[in-house]
């Protein structure tokens, strides 16, 4: 029964990913992306990480996709263009995909890391937050500095261009 559920979840997730890539309209892509992020949150719950599942829903589905939808609404995309490009990049894409699928095959044939029974201590919320604010405190602070730099970068990018009135 569990395995059927896992297989169903996998198929739904892959289907949502396909929907993001092949949708003609960017809004449809964004909605498929929301579905994909919720399904990935379920995956994180399956792997006993409720913290990451919550962060996934809050940050990805709540903030990032809304940002995408916002930009799609902001731009006037009535001027349509071909959704696919057909360059050498298509060959590159096919090569990259075959390499990743080959890696999957290799991985499924030879289990590199033997499966362990998890003791849910090291990935509990308490342990993760303790590690984040003690052992990795400096990395955390540098990350906040990075976010500040990104904010300044966005302000300077979004500034009105030369010759443009406010």
């Amino acid at each position: 029964m569990n395995q059927i559920l896992i297989g169903l979840l996998s198929l739904l997730t892959i289907g949502a990913g396909v929907g993001v890539v092949i949708a003609k309209n960017a809004v449809i892509s964004a909605f498929n992306l929301i579905i994909l992020f919720f399904l990935l949150a379920i995956w994180f719950l399956v792997w006993e990480s409720p913290l990451i599942a919550m962060l996934q829903i809050l940050i990805y589905a709540g903030a990032i996709v809304v940002l995408f939808v916002f930009v799609v609404m902001l731009l006037d995309l009535r001027k349509t263009f071909e959704i696919w490009t057909f360059h050498r990049t298509v060959v590159l894409a096919v090569m990259a995909v075959s390499v990743t699928l080959g890696l999957l095959f290799f991985q499924s044939v030879s289990q590199i890391i033997p499966p362990q029974l998890s003791q849910p201590n090291a990935t509990s919320l308490r342990v993760v937050s303790l590690a984040l604010f003690t052992q990795y405190l400096w990395a955390f602070e540098i990350l906040s500095l990075f976010l500040l730099a990104m904010m300044i970068a966005i302000f300077s990018v979004a500034r009105p261009m030369e010759g443009e009135t406010e």
Binding site: V20, A26, L75, I83, T85, T89, L103, Q107
Partner: peptide, 23 residues
């Protein structure tokens, strides 16, 4: 692993092939 690899491949295809910058 199958889901993760498939999503990565799909993302790579979309990144290389799609023309809409938002997608």
């Amino acid at each position: 692993h199958a889901v993760a690899f498939s999503l990565f491949s799909l993302g790579l295809i979309g990144f290389l092939v799609r023309r809409n910058a938002i997608v």
